[in-house]
Amino acid sequence: MAHLLSEDSQLVKDWASDQDAFKGVSWGKAMMWIFLLSDTFIFSSFLVGYMTVRMSVTEPWPNASEVFALTIAGHHIPLILIAIMTFILITSSGTMAMAVNMGYARKRKQAARLMFVTALLGASFVGMQAFEWTKLIEEGVRPWGNPFGAAQFGSTFFMVTGFHGLHVSAGVIYLLIVARKIQLGHYEKEGNYQIVEIAGLYWHFVDLVWVFIFAFFYLW
């Protein structure tokens, strides 16, 4: 720690320098990071709200493992849909990371193609979420109550996954726009493909949030 704060550490030098504190970070990327920081607080507040109501209701909390189970080919498998959604989102993060790599390698076509794949995976995630919502609504889960236990189960489920789903949907649109622009060669002139990395930051963040939702809402 002492080393980190000493006068000649890179940390102190960067902060004490003129013009920019984040060396080599473009305006867009800096802004995206700061936005994600703010968004972290939004999701954390949602999850804190969820934690508090879950801990303070006297009704029993439904067993997520059961509620989200599917019967496939006669087998009753707990949480299987959620597991698949998790894998899809992780896969999309992987393709996104490769798109960033292609962008920096100036492989325009591949970058755009990988981004389209990412968007497709994202869209299928949203599709599965829609399926999950439909299933739960058919089973009688509503924001104000459900047949399995505490009413807040439904409220927080729709609120938290809904908000995350909105983020994914927005991300899909964002990725599509950027990918299209790359295809059309909009960034060719400046030769700077950092936009892919910025879009990637957002996309990975959405994945990151899902990691927490998966752990706290579905597994806990």
Partner: peptide, 18 residues
Amino acid sequence: IVAVFMHMMWERLALIYA
């Protein structure tokens, strides 16, 4: 995810801490 996919581990300390 944060360290590798979001490239945090290659960023400079100023950004990481912020």
